[in-house]
């Protein structure tokens, strides 16, 4: 039996997961020009919010998932307004912001561990009974298909929003030059706040879908964040299409990279690709 079709499907699934993380991360970075580490923990926040509403309170998924996204978005917005915005206004260095983001990340992770314990949890109610589809010789589950479709829908929705709405144009303007945007009358603080809300809600959605696919734990955000960052950098940081391209490229490189060697090398391969890009093409595949 040929393994290649399944490897391609696996790569696409991984790429779709990284796409969602990279989309939100790129949106925030592209606008605020700031490496938001706390973003990773918001994926876990989304996952745990759905765990609470869906599995503990027994609410419908149609209510629990939007609630999970809104909670992740609100927490992201709150962190921006209470921590990052004052630091940015004081013209704090990027190192100070990075440390503050690391603090927010660690605090959120700890709060989740206190509230829900560090125990690994699954969001699906009936493990192993999931619908499975066969596509061109590869197998894909219902959740993985949803992840793939969601990633693509998000990418197009974001691209259209940025191109055709006033909000999108303001986001691009702030991303291009925050000071000039202020001069022309854009409320940059409000725009960046909204970007943090949207980006964090996307992170929450990524955490929710990963929770249905594999499971959730308070520390899940770090690995997701790292993969999202690698995808963003190799695709072109701040560029939405670049992030998606980088995410799928990373998915393919990781999965095909361990085809003939041990799975332990997966992360090493991902970071190896990152280093190569940083040395050879630091601006990524697509420039902003």
């Amino acid at each position: 039996m040929d393994i290649v079709p399944q490897l391609i499907v696996n790569s696409i699934i991984a790429g779709a997961i990284y796409t969602m993380v990279a989309l939100g991360f790129n949106l925030i970075y592209g606008t605020a020009k700031f490496f938001d580490l706390g973003y990773g923990a918001l994926a876990a926040v989304g996952g745990y919010a759905v765990f609470y509403f869906y599995k503990t309170l027994g609410l419908s998924l149609w209510i629990a998932i939007p609630l999970g996204m809104v909670i992740a978005g609100l927490i992201g917005f709150f962190i921006y307004r209470s921590i990052y915005a004052p630091l940015r206004e004081r013209k704090s260095s990027s190192m100070v912001l990075l440390v503050a983001a690391l603090g927010a990340f660690t605090a959120l992770q700890s709060v989740l561990a206190i509230l829900f314990t560090s125990q690994f949890q699954t969001l699906s109610r009936s493990a192993g009974d999931e619908r499975v589809f066969e596509i061109a010789g590869g197998v894909i589950t219902q959740v993985q298909l949803i992840i793939l479709i969601t990633g693509l829908v998000l990418m197009f929705a974001m691209a259209l929003t940025l191109k055709y709405t006033m909000f999108g144009k303001a986001v691009k303007a702030v991303g291009d030059d925050e000071e000039v945007s202020k001069i022309v009358g854009i409320n940059t603080r409000s725009i960046i706040g909204k970007v943090f809300f949207i980006g964090s809600a996307i992170a929450g959605l990524a955490g929710i879908l990963v929770g249905f696919d594999t499971g959730i734990e308070p520390t899940m955000g770090l690995s997701l964040l790292l993969k999202g960052v690698i995808a963003s950098i190799i695709g072109g940081i701040g560029n939405i299409y670049g992030g998606v391209l980088g995410a799928f490229l990373l998915g393919f490189v990781e999965n095909f990279g361990i085809w003939k060697i041990s799975g332990e090398w997966k992360d090493a391969i991902a970071f190896g690709v990152l280093i190569i890009f940083l040395l050879v093409r630091p601006q990524g595949i697509l420039k902003k």
């Binding site: 039996m1 393994i3 499971g215 690995s223």
Partner: peptide, 20 residues
């Protein structure tokens, strides 16, 4: 044979190899 590190949650490639 597949030996992975703690925290690995994506075994899809290894499962494809197992299948074959």
């Amino acid at each position: 044979e597949s030996v992975t590190s703690f925290g690995t949650k994506d075994f899809r490639t290894q499962v494809s190899q197992l299948k074959n």
